[in-house]
Amino acid sequence: MTEPITLTVNGLDYPVDVDMGRNLLSVLRTEIGLTGTKEGCDDSECGACMVLLDDQPVNSCSYLALQAEGKSVTTIEGVMPADGLHAIQRSLLEEGGVQCGFCTPGIIMSTRALLDGNPSPSEEEIRIGLSGNLCRCTGYAKILAAVIRTASDN
C-alpha cells in the first residue's frame, strides 16, 4: 500500500507515492531523480547517503521517507550553486580530497552542517563532525585539509 505525500527537497515540493517501508534515499534517487545522494552500505555506517533534515545530517538510507513529510530535506544538489562550485566543493578539489568521489556528496553534507553550526571548528571537532562518513580512497588527511581550508576561507 502506498501513501501520497509531499516531500520538500531543496526548497521544492515533490508529490510522491511511497510504501511505508521505503527509505528516504530510494525516494530521492528513484522518484525525485536526485541521484547525487549515494547508496553505500545501506546500513547507516558509511555516510554516502547523508542528507540534511531540517539542517541536521541524517543517514537517508535508514530514514523512512514517510517520516520526512513536512520537514526540509537538503541534498547535494541543493548545496551546489546554479553556476560554479560551493566553497566546500572547491576546497575538496584543490586539496585533492576527492578520488573516486563516491563518498564526496556525503562528506560535503556533513561538512556543510558542521560549518553552519560551528564556522571555526578545531581539527578534533572536524574529525568528530565527519566521523559518520567513510572514505576508502583518500586516507582522510586531504579531506581534513579541505575542511580546514573551507573554514579559514570563510
Binding site: 555516510g47 541536521q56 545530517p57 543517514n59 559518520g132
Partner: peptide, 8 residues
Amino acid sequence: GSPSTRNI
C-alpha cells in the same frame, strides 16, 4: 553512533 545518529 555518529553525529547523524545522535541527531535523531
